[in-house]
Design a binder for these strands. Structure first.
Ligand SMILES: [Zn+2]
Length: 566
DNA sequence: AGCCTTTGACCAGCG
DNA sequence: TCGCTGGTCAAAGGC
């Protein structure tokens, strides 16, 4: 329902793209405009802000986001908004164990500016969501620097640290105050036609379009660098992370079809990164995005890295905001999570892993529905909760567990993904894909005919794809796949057929119950549907013990004919 | 044909 | 015990 809504809205946005207005800006490269007052990697937002600031001298102090917000929101007399109203770090300390270093609420202009815009996941302006990572089965007590544990803020110089409590408070504020209601004066320099979202506006040719923009935490196309290996804990040093990110990320015009080969960093996923206790904050820091570092509140079975939407606007926090905040923390505790550290990243779920949504629910106290995802990797029980606004922007992500596998090497759905992703899967991902693909190859002994049909790319996609290719392009990291498929289908290139050696399929006939097959294994039914031309419904099952690499198709006839595919 | 999302139902924990 | 809530399951349909 929500997805359809967001989908429709997205589609509507797409329609608007053709008639998006263009901004008249001085002939000046963003870099030029930026060099003037920025020494950090600018975001399109920042660039535009700087550009507009020059044109609108009277609003020089106003960020573009504020302009946008003003343009979108009705004139509000005597706005009292000030960023100084942001909660003080000391207050946040109250919400966190005293033994932990307090996280300073971020005052980075960009996140604040971003938060003033209407949420849009596909927008480069979208605010970083809240991410939490809850790692399972962690020893009750781990050294602060142990892998997977938050890094003490002290170890990350240059990083803006915000108290988790503060962050939450801001989150609550964000959630309780829609941008349109923010007391931001309407900017005389920029007006947005009704029905046109800032996202669309910023996607105009004047700016770096999302397609042209270099993948970045800001654009949300920047894959978060994971840290591989326990030794990666050393990278918890923000210096290293910053350097890496800085060297990796830069706003550069790129063609939509061109895709930079994933750098070592870009191949790393935020989730993995988070599991290392470093979190995507490293990436965020590189892009001048506010961030909150993980802090281990206490010895816990769980470890949570929570990236939350940055303090949207420094507006007085509604009374209910507090309760909501505390509730969220309670939730984190319930998850066994060490309460999180709001990280400001654009697309936290762009972690390179494949997820299967297994539930969605409207959580009380949360303005947006919460989706439940499970890692599709065999035997991997990592889950995540994603709260997404109605227009698709991720507002909170909570990771639970730790991946026991590297990031997938191929995209999940090459057939639906872009051609580049497919070509990537054909090369990089082929090793992995072929592995699984071979498993999919089979001779149908029952029919005595060899299956000649090429393994569909979709089947290959069944392999845990790294999703780097498609994800880097996805406007919305956490968008439902259906949505992703639709979007990707547009620029998909012809499928490259994969030919692999076929292996015989083992066919087993059994009369036992589906759940208690006589093969000695336990099967989990994951679907049932009527196959065309067959009067009996076919059950799809996988072998959990083998990561569902073994599949069984049973047709519920009296004889319960089942075909086991290995 | 397989895997995905959707979504209502179910379950468990908690006050 | 009951109701509330969050989390999960699983049928159904879609891609
Ligand atoms: Zn996993």
């Amino acid at each position: 329902m929500d997805s359809s809504d967001s989908r429709s809205s997205r589609e509507a946005t797409g329609e608007l793209l053709s008639k998006r207005p263009s901004l008249i800006v001085p002939v000046k490269t963003p870099a030029e405009a930026l060099q003037k007052d920025l020494d950090l990697t600018p975001s399109p937002m920042t660039i535009l802000s700087s550009i507009l600031a020059e044109q609108c001298t009277e609003l020089k102090t106003e960020t573009f986001s504020q302009m946008l917000a003003g343009a979108l929101s009705p004139p509000i007399p005597a706005p009292s908004f000030t960023q100084k109203e942001a909660p003080s770090p000391s207050r946040a300390d109250d919400d966190t164990p005293s033994s932990l270093p307090s996280l300073a609420s971020s005052t980075t202009p960009l996140p604040l500016a971003l938060s003033s815009l209407s949420p849009s996941s596909s927008s480069p302006l979208s605010s970083p969501p809240l991410i939490s990572s809850t790692l399972e089965e962690k020893p009750p007590s781990l050294p602060p620097q142990a892998p997977g544990l938050p890094v003490p803020p002290a170890a990350m110089p240059g990083l803006k640290i915000a108290a988790s409590g503060s962050g939450r408070s801001n989150i609550a504020r964000f959630k309780t105050m829609m941008p349109s209601r923010l007391p931001i004066p309407r900017s005389p320099c920029l007006t947005i036609p009704p029905g046109l979202s800032p996202t669309t506006l910023l996607d105009s040719p004047v700016l770096l379009s999302t397609g042209q923009a270099e993948p970045s935490p800001t654009t949300g196309t920047f894959p978060l660098p994971p840290i591989s290996g326990p030794a990666s804990s050393a990278t918890s040093d923000s210096k290293i992370a910053d350097e890496d990110c800085n060297s990796t990320f830069a706003f550069k015009p790129i063609t939509k079809t061109s895709r930079n080969p994933p750098s070592p960093l870009s191949k790393m996923g935020s989730s993995q990164l988070q599991s290392q206790g470093i979190s995507s904050s490293t990436a965020a820091s590189a892009t001048n995005v506010s961030q909150v570092l993980p802090q281990s509140a206490s010895a816990s079975f769980w470890e949570a890295h929570k990236v939350t939407k940055p303090p949207a606007m420094a507006v007085p926090m509604p009374a209910e905001g507090e309760s909501e905040v505390s509730k969220k923390e309670d939730m984190a505790v319930q998850y066994g999570a060490v309460v999180a550290q709001p990280l400001v990243i654009e697309r936290p779920s762009e972690d390179g892993y494949n997820w299967r949504k297994y539930g969605q629910k409207q959580v009380k106290g949360s303005e947006f529905p919460r989706s439940y995802y499970k890692c599709t990797h065999p035997n991997c029980s990592v889950k995540k909760k994603v709260e997404r606004s109605h227009d698709g922007q991720v507002t909170e992500i909570v990771y639970k567990g730790e991946h026991d596998h590297p990031k997938p090497q191929s995209v999940r759905r090459p057939s639906m993904g872009n051609a580049h992703a497919q070509s990537l899967s054909g090369r990089e991902g082929l090793s992995m894909g072929a592995q699984r693909n071979d498993n999919l190859q089979r001779l149908n002994f029952s029919s005595g005919t060899t299956q000649t049909s090429e393994p569909s790319l979709g089947s290959v996609s069944d392999v845990e794809g790294d999703g780097e290719g498609s994800k880097a392009e996805d406007g919305d990291d956490d968008e439902p796949d259906s949505k992703r498929r639709k979007e990707a289908a547009g620029d998909a290139l012809p499928n490259i057929p994969l030919r692999t050696i076929r292996e015989p399929r083992v066919v087993v006939q059994t009369t036992s119950e589906i759940d208690i097959l006589d093969d000695g294994y336990r099967w989990r039914k994951y679907g049932q549907k009527v196959v065309k031309g067959n009067p009996h419904p076919r059950n799809g099952m996988g072998l959990p013990e083998f990561g569902l690499n073994y599949h069984i198709s049973c047709e519920g006839s009296a004889n319960s004919y089942c075909a086991v595919q290995a």
